[in-house]
Simulated scan of single mutants.
Amino acid sequence: MSGQQKEPIKNKRIWIVFGILLALITPWYFPKSFGEILIYGIPLWAVIIIIASMLLSAFLSYVIKNHWMMEEENEEDEKNETKGVR
Protein backbone atom coordinates (compact mmCIF):
# COMPACT_ATOMS: atom_id res chain seq x y z
CA MET A 1 0.00 0.00 0.00
CA SER A 2 1.24 3.45 -0.79
CA GLY A 3 1.30 6.19 1.79
CA GLN A 4 1.16 6.09 5.54
CA GLN A 5 -2.13 4.96 7.06
CA LYS A 6 -3.38 6.36 10.33
CA GLU A 7 -4.79 4.26 13.09
CA PRO A 8 -8.61 4.39 13.03
CA ILE A 9 -8.74 5.46 16.69
CA LYS A 10 -7.35 8.87 15.70
CA ASN A 11 -9.89 9.48 12.91
CA LYS A 12 -12.80 11.62 14.17
CA ARG A 13 -15.05 10.76 11.21
CA ILE A 14 -14.91 7.08 12.07
CA TRP A 15 -15.94 7.82 15.67
CA ILE A 16 -18.85 10.00 14.49
CA VAL A 17 -20.19 7.22 12.26
CA PHE A 18 -19.74 4.68 15.08
CA GLY A 19 -21.66 6.97 17.43
CA ILE A 20 -24.55 7.39 15.00
CA LEU A 21 -24.79 3.66 14.29
CA LEU A 22 -24.57 2.76 17.97
CA ALA A 23 -27.35 5.27 18.73
CA LEU A 24 -29.53 3.64 16.07
CA ILE A 25 -29.16 0.16 17.59
CA THR A 26 -30.21 1.41 21.05
CA PRO A 27 -34.00 1.01 21.25
CA TRP A 28 -34.89 2.59 24.59
CA TYR A 29 -35.12 6.15 23.30
CA PHE A 30 -37.50 5.34 20.42
CA PRO A 31 -41.01 6.77 20.89
CA LYS A 32 -43.79 4.35 21.86
CA SER A 33 -45.43 4.90 18.48
CA PHE A 34 -42.55 3.00 16.85
CA GLY A 35 -43.92 -0.18 18.45
CA GLU A 36 -47.34 0.39 16.91
CA ILE A 37 -46.08 0.77 13.34
CA LEU A 38 -45.59 -2.66 11.77
CA ILE A 39 -43.66 -3.54 8.63
CA TYR A 40 -44.54 -7.09 7.57
CA GLY A 41 -45.47 -7.81 11.17
CA ILE A 42 -42.21 -6.46 12.63
CA PRO A 43 -42.25 -3.27 14.74
CA LEU A 44 -40.56 -0.27 13.14
CA TRP A 45 -37.99 -0.02 15.94
CA ALA A 46 -36.89 -3.61 15.26
CA VAL A 47 -36.50 -2.91 11.53
CA ILE A 48 -34.36 0.14 12.32
CA ILE A 49 -32.17 -1.89 14.68
CA ILE A 50 -31.72 -4.71 12.15
CA ILE A 51 -30.72 -2.30 9.36
CA ALA A 52 -28.41 -0.33 11.67
CA SER A 53 -26.77 -3.57 12.84
CA MET A 54 -26.06 -4.59 9.25
CA LEU A 55 -24.66 -1.11 8.53
CA LEU A 56 -22.49 -1.30 11.65
CA SER A 57 -21.10 -4.67 10.56
CA ALA A 58 -20.36 -3.38 7.07
CA PHE A 59 -18.72 -0.23 8.46
CA LEU A 60 -16.56 -2.25 10.86
CA SER A 61 -15.44 -4.44 7.97
CA TYR A 62 -14.58 -1.35 5.93
CA VAL A 63 -12.58 0.22 8.78
CA ILE A 64 -10.65 -2.95 9.50
CA LYS A 65 -9.87 -3.58 5.83
CA ASN A 66 -8.94 -0.03 4.81
CA HIS A 67 -7.84 1.88 7.90
CA TRP A 68 -6.31 -0.61 10.30
CA MET A 69 -2.58 -1.22 10.00
CA MET A 70 -1.65 -4.75 10.96
CA GLU A 71 1.84 -5.67 12.13
CA GLU A 72 1.97 -8.51 9.60
CA GLU A 73 1.35 -6.03 6.76
CA ASN A 74 4.17 -3.81 7.99
CA GLU A 75 6.55 -6.76 8.18
CA GLU A 76 5.56 -8.00 4.71
CA ASP A 77 5.98 -4.51 3.24
CA GLU A 78 9.43 -4.19 4.80
CA LYS A 79 10.47 -7.62 3.48
CA ASN A 80 9.22 -6.78 -0.01
CA GLU A 81 11.03 -3.45 0.01
CA THR A 82 14.31 -5.07 0.95
CA LYS A 83 13.88 -7.64 -1.83
CA GLY A 84 12.76 -5.01 -4.33
CA VAL A 85 9.37 -6.70 -4.85
CA ARG A 86 6.21 -4.66 -5.20
Rank of each mutant, 00 (worst) to 15 (best):
P27W: 11
I50F: 14
I49P: 00
M1S: 08
V17C: 05
G19F: 04
K10V: 02
A46H: 10
E76V: 06
F30S: 12
S2F: 04
P31R: 15
S33K: 07
R13Y: 07
Y40R: 15
K79G: 09
L55S: 15
K6S: 07
S57V: 00
P8C: 02
P8D: 02
F18Q: 08
H67D: 08
L38K: 12
K10P: 00
F18W: 10
G41Q: 09
S61Y: 12
V17T: 06
V85K: 10
E71G: 07
V63E: 03
V47M: 14
S61R: 10
F30R: 08
I48V: 15
F30P: 01
W68A: 07
W68G: 03
A52N: 14
T82G: 09
M1W: 03
L60N: 12
S2R: 01
I64L: 13
M70Y: 08
Y29K: 11
G3W: 01
E73N: 10
Y29G: 12
R13K: 09
N11M: 04
H67Y: 13
V47A: 12
E71N: 09
G3I: 00
L21N: 11
K32H: 07
I42F: 13
I9Q: 05
A46M: 09
G84H: 08
V17K: 07
P43I: 09
K65Y: 08
I42S: 12
E72F: 07
L22V: 09
M54W: 13
F30A: 15
T82P: 02
L55T: 05
E75S: 06
A58D: 02
F59V: 01
K79A: 11
Q4E: 04
I16W: 00
I64S: 10
Q4T: 04
K65G: 07
I42Y: 14
